[in-house]
């Protein structure tokens, strides 16, 4: 366990829902800036690798606590467990990643993810996203990679969503530092499933403080 592993913290108090992270993610990983045109899948936000959902309030189950639908980079990822070809794996930084070359397209990972993190798009898209082979590829289950294609050499990198957030709502760093920064206020989603996510949330604080 020599390597340091990465983690993300999202503070829902600071998140104002401006969509900067979502659009930045689409630009980085989903869309194609081709000569003279931009290719974007229909329902780009649905296919973005992170997207806020505030409708919880009308559903009664999540109260009015907004959440981000995105890969939680579980330590114990159900998607990796079911992947028959080892296409989904945890890399040295702790990122749950997909090797497109090995993916047979059985969709077991989509069925197995309790976070709704994986989408799939089956229509053609011309060109390549900025993130190249790590980007959105039609016909393959797609999910957040923590923008690990941005890694240069050793050390940390900055995912596109972190870079885009002007409100300091997202933090990305090494596991122990992120946990320290969260000061014990962070929670993980669907804790009972034992998936051990590496995306942490600080929930909105309400009432008299």
């Amino acid at each position: 366990m020599g390597r340091r592993r990465v983690m993300m913290l999202i503070d829902m108090n600071s998140c104002v829902g401006c969509m900067a992270c979502v659009v930045a993610c689409i630009r980085e990983n989903i869309a194609r800036q081709n000569r003279g045109d931009v290719e974007i899948p229909e329902d780009a936000v649905y296919h973005a690798r992170t997207k806020p959902e505030y409708a919880g309030m009308e559903l009664g189950l999540t109260g009015d606590i907004p959440i981000f639908i995105q890969c939680q980079h579980c330590d114990n990822p159900p998607c990796e467990m079911v992947c028959p070809t080892g296409a989904t794996y945890i890399d040295e930084d702790g990122v749950v990643a997909l090797d497109h070359g090995k993916c047979v397209g059985c969709r077991a990972c989509i069925a197995a993810c309790p976070y709704g993190a994986r989408t799939i798009y089956r229509r053609p898209l011309a060109g390549e996203p900025l993130s190249g082979g790590e980007g959105f590829q039609p016909g393959y289950p797609d999910k957040c990679t923590f923008c690990r294609h941005r890694k240069r050499g050793e050390g940390l990198w900055t995912p596109a969503c972190i870079e885009a957030c002007a409100f300091g709502a997202r933090l990305f760093g090494y596991e122990e530092d992120v946990i320290e920064s969260s000061e014990g206020r962070a929670v993980r989603l669907l804790e009972a499933l034992g998936t051990e996510p590496k995306v942490l949330y600080i929930l909105p604080v309400k009432g008299r403080r």
């Binding site: 070809t85 016909g139 393959y140």
Partner: peptide, 22 residues
Amino acid sequence: DVLHPGAAPYFYLSFNPESRIA
């Protein structure tokens, strides 16, 4: 049904014992 049957050799070359599909 599988979208990329060409990757089928990895069922065996990159066998994942945790996966029932494997």
